[in-house]
């Protein structure tokens, strides 16, 4: 199939959805489904860029800070659990238990303790995204080839250099996978904690709009959240592909030989 027909076919479904929604919402006048142009106008009024500094940027700052804390804590913890056998055997099951708690479940108890300030949000995000990063790092420690570890020992690479240059590098595909899951959890927690308990933020505004039956604002908020969710993942994937270009190259060359 040529690229042109692929692109053409790819456009069919989105265009069909948009057109049928526009036609239907114009006629039905349903309170839930306002016309597309009304939603887009509200989107522009709210998010370009009136509320960006008051409601979008603080949320994103919480997200970034929380995830950063999770990575800073999760990688060393995972490295210890993965490299020191008795530590892994002792705390691995506990970690498995906590990772099995649905992230949103962490919000009610943490809100009870910490309240609804930004620092509480950062903590909730950090706690929720810590577990996937930590587990993936512990798992990544098993990826280092024993021969390479022997080679590093024969070169008398110190323990810290071996950890950084061999174990963490060899485990980087797994670790980045864990950070990606952590990012998803962080995003969910950012939105959910604002929906549940907050006084500002996109999640809060969108949920308030739903409660007050302001369906236009609700749609505009949903649109922005979807856009942000997609973009956050796309940015992460772009960074990951850059960092892991060696991994892709190696797999391609091994598969073809």
């Amino acid at each position: 199939m040529s690229l042109r027909s692929r692109v053409a076919l790819g456009l069919v479904v989105p265009v069909a959805i948009v057109v049928s929604y526009a036609l239907w919402s114009a006629n039905a006048a349903s309170p839930y489904f306002p016309p597309l142009d009304v939603i887009l106008t509200r989107f522009r009024e709210l998010w370009l860029f009136d509320l960006v500094s008051s409601d979008v940027l603080p949320s994103l700052k919480n997200l970034g800070l929380g995830l950063l804390l999770a990575v800073i804590a999760g990688i060393p913890c995972g490295a210890i659990l993965g490299r020191i056998r008795w530590m892994g055997e002792m705390f691995g099951p506990l970690l498995d238990f906590w990772r099995s708690v649905p992230p949103i479940m962490l919000i009610p108890p943490l809100v009870l303790i910490l309240g609804i300030e930004d620092s509480a949000k950062v903590t909730i995000i950090a706690v929720g995204s810590f577990f996937p990063v930590c587990v993936a790092t512990a798992d990544g420690m098993r990826q280092a080839d024993p021969t390479l570890v022997d080679a590093a020992r024969a070169m008398r690479l110190g323990p810290l250099k071996t950890m950084v240059d061999i174990y963490l590098r060899a485990g980087s595909p797994a670790i980045l996978g864990g950070i990606q899951i952590g990012l998803q959890a962080a995003f969910v927690l950012m939105v959910a904690s604002e929906m549940l308990a907050a006084y500002r933020g996109i999640g809060y505004l969108t949920m308030q709009a739903q409660v007050t039956f302001d369906s236009v604002t609700m749609w505009a908020g949903t649109l922005l959240l979807a856009l942000l969710g997609f973009t956050a993942n796309a940015v992460f994937v772009a960074i990951r592909n850059r960092v892991l270009s060696w991994h892709t190259g190696m797999r391609v060359s091994r598969a073809s030989s």
Partner: peptide, 20 residues
Amino acid sequence: ALLDPISQVLRPIPAVVWLP
């Protein structure tokens, strides 16, 4: 070709977004 682009766009969006 029909469905892949739309799946690529919707897949990374966390479902919690659709809650309201």
